[in-house]
Write a protein that binds this DNA or RNA. Structure first.
Lengths: 202, 202
DNA sequence: TCAGTTGTCTACCGACCGGTAGAGAAGGCA
DNA sequence: TGCCTTCTCTACCGGTCGGTAGACAACTGA
């Protein structure tokens, strides 16, 4: 009933949709429950997004932009190789801390197939290129173990996103473990792991 | 229509269900489409499994047992630290090669929450303990970098399962890349990555 | 003032999904 | 032979979901 104005409604709906798509999956989340959570009828949601697919598209776009700006900010003022690598990981974990469903949504986007994931990833493409150049340069100067930089980036991605999304596995492997403290432990662990993996031989 | 006998039907249905649960998610896969793929009516499926949840349970159980026997076989005859670690990774990748939906199903199980994942993991608990003892022993003798062995096992899990399930990300990061050759490349990459990460400092 | 745009609603439809009820065919066994 | 268990089927129900049709209110600007 309260008319909050178009743009604000849009962003509220997108935020809630990312939340529910991440938690329940694209198929598992209904536009009705998303609308209800926002305090509006389903048909109002469909006024803003002509169908469920269009809503997903808007979510992918928004998520890409949000992560992009987060990483850009994190990279500000990071100079050395380690500063930059750590800044990226810290930035992603920071985003996950304030928005727990974000990593799950990204993983769901990947699950929906390359066409969906690409719509999220296009925004991040410049960062991807920078990351690969960065890794390559580190290998050339001998600061990073020599290997295929693109495959390395992929492996780093899986390690970071995995440690953010596989909470069920975490509790099965190390026992009950949740909350902010757990997130910090995982960040520290991933950081050490990545550092060890990048280190050149002896 | 053809009566193949109870036990065989059961296992066929479970295999197809793991396939579709992995591909479409638990919610996204319907018992109707699973039954149809097996060549049987939905109500026949419901004769074997009283409801969808019971079918999931059977899938989790079967998946756990299958992975357990695979890993047990892989560990046969592996003596040194590296032989054992590599055998486990190679075993998982081998299973993924002949059964592509298997890793996706495991990830879906984890997504459904700890209660579902535990039903998969209980069977593997002895292996989990062995793995942690193994890592701890390696740290004590200085062959593995010192850290929390349980957290390390978790991180290793995410790296392996991630590289098996994030195909969409792979294609976005390194370009189009699929098939057995890609799987081999990923296995090699994960192996090198893990080896580098476990190596003790200088 | 009044027409047009923007935003929210009620009411409804067709499709699909999980699950129930119960008929009936095939083989084992007395 | 005839009963009983095993297996598969047709038919149906209630609920949910995505999406359409269209009424109606409120703000905007000529």
């Amino acid at each position: 009933m309260p008319r909050t104005g178009g743009e604000q409604r849009r962003t509220t709906i997108v935020a809630e949709a990312i939340h529910q798509f991440g938690r329940d999956g694209y198929k598992g989340a209904s536009i009705e429950s998303i609308a209800t959570a926002v305090g509006v009828r389903k048909q109002t949601l469909l006024y803003y997004f002509s169908n469920k697919e269009a809503l997903l598209e808007a979510c992918l776009q928004a998520a890409g932009e949000r992560l992009g700006s987060e990483l850009a900010a994190a990279l500000e003022g990071a100079e050395t190789y380690w500063d930059r690598a750590e800044a990226v990981i810290h930035g992603v974990f920071g985003l996950a801390a304030e928005w727990p469903e974000f990593p799950m949504f990204i993983r769901e986007a990947a699950r929906l197939g390359p066409s969906a994931f690409d719509r999220f990833a296009v925004v991040l493409d410049p960062l991807r290129r920078r990351a690969i150049d960065f890794l390559q340069a580190g290998m050339d100067t001998g600061e990073i173990r020599k290997q295929d930089p693109a495959m390395l980036l992929f492996t780093l991605y899986t390690a970071v996103v995995g440690s953010l999304t596989e909470a069920s596995v975490l509790s099965a492997v190390v026992g009950a473990d949740s909350g902010r403290a757990s997130l910090r432990r995982r960040e520290r662990e991933v950081l050490l792991f990545v550092r060890a993996a990048l280190r050149p031989a002896e």
